[in-house]
Design a protein around this nucleic acid. Structure first.
Lengths: 220, 220
DNA sequence: ATTGAAGTGTAACAGTTGTTACACTTGCGA
DNA sequence: TCGCAAGTGTAACAACTGTTACACTTCAAT
């Protein structure tokens, strides 16, 4: 939904002589084929991994063995960088290659050294993690809203703040339902009722807020 | 529920001459009285704040103006450290003093300098943020489980992994219901039904798993 | 011993959502 | 043009949860 990507453009040139990284930095690059499993859930995470090219998907395995999709990561972006420094440094997800993938690996000790040498790298790393935390916080706030109409109101009011009363959503109803964690027909029903109550109107992905105050009421 | 506190013991001695912090480090300490509002939601967060003594509570203001409790922070612990480095560096919550409070303030530039000078401080900072991210991820996983019995199963199976089939929960039903985000009588009903089905048994806060496989079924 | 607060069990009813099934539209490719 | 897949609207019913109210137990304080 919200774009959670921080640019990691410096990594794009890691193999060139641009002077950003120290010459003696240790790193390895490994390639994977499509559908390869890169990491299993629970694997130890003792290095910083960055997707240099291609894309991977992450999935969470529930206790019952089911797979729940979490997110898709496109190059260039680090892979679960927050867990490198956590006390329980294990991958919380299953990581699978969606395409051919080049994966950069920098050992934790090198990351620490790099951060000490390059304060701007450290800030970039910190900022990326901070943005992810903020993303998670927002996602959690949405999940704590119990009614479907409340979730809809939350999303539309967020859009309203940036785009005004009329805007286009980039997701169809099926995707929205997944994002909200509700059944698709239930979402459709709630939307229809809100149209019936003249609170919103929509056609395809173009939405219009007709009664702002009524929309806010759903968040109480 | 889960303890999310990382020790920040180094800060306890910040005013002493223990050599951990550079002598010329800039910081200020401000005191607040009970019930003082320390930060408003949306205030700019341009420094690292650490609760040195006392405790504060954080609350999120919904669009409708309602307050939703997030967490209580006891000294010594940093205050929303993740947001210092985020692109939108604003406090996501309202911060209020629960007791008399001493608050340490270190400007962002000083934090960066400190991290460069002291790799162990940087690691501690990173670890704390990483643990918070992991905490949020776990919390979110629980919220994505829709049925009450599923939430119960999730919690009990987590306990089972560390303590075995018999264990004591540190929360009563009212607290559990809040943690799950469900109504207290609904939780009680679900628990009773699971006892009826001979999947678990409990007396006060002492729980026993009778049918492990049936418990796992609730997570599908 | 009595009172009162906290925690819990339980029931009846209302409200919301999920499930399932089917119809309809749209757009695209064969 | 035809057929097919994707997206959507809708209905009937089941399942689950919330709300409200009340009874009961336990335990600590007076």
């Amino acid at each position: 939904m919200t774009d959670n990507t921080t640019s990691w453009t410096n990594f794009e040139n890691i193999q060139e002589e641009n002077g950003f990284f120290p010459d003696d930095m240790q790193f390895t690059i490994k390639t994977y084929r499509k559908k390869d499993i890169i990491f299993h859930q629970g694997d130890t995470c003792d290095a910083l991994y960055v997707v240099m090219s291609g894309s991977v998907k992450t999935e969470m395995i529930s206790e019952s063995g089911n797979l729940m999709p979490i997110e898709t990561i496109h190059a260039p972006r680090p892979l679960a960088p927050a867990f490198l420094f956590s006390d329980k440094n294990q991958f919380p997800v299953e990581v699978t290659a969606l395409t051919a993938v080049e994966l950069l690996r920098i050992p934790k000790t090198e990351v620490v050294r790099l951060m000490t040498l390059r304060p701007d790298f450290m800030q970039q790393f910190m900022t990326h993690n901070a943005n992810r935390t903020q993303f998670l916080t927002q996602r959690m706030q949405l999940l704590t809203i119990k009614t479907i109409k409340g979730k809809i109101a939350h999303l539309l009011l967020e859009k309203y703040q940036s785009d005004g009363l009329t805007f286009t959503l980039s997701n169809n109803q099926t995707e929205l339902a997944d994002y909200f964690g509700v059944a698709r027909p239930s979402l459709s029903r709630s939307l229809s009722e809100m149209v019936e109550e003249r609170i919103i109107s929509f056609d395809k992905n173009k939405y219009k807020i007709l009664n702002l105050n009524a929309l806010k009421e759903f968040l109480i």
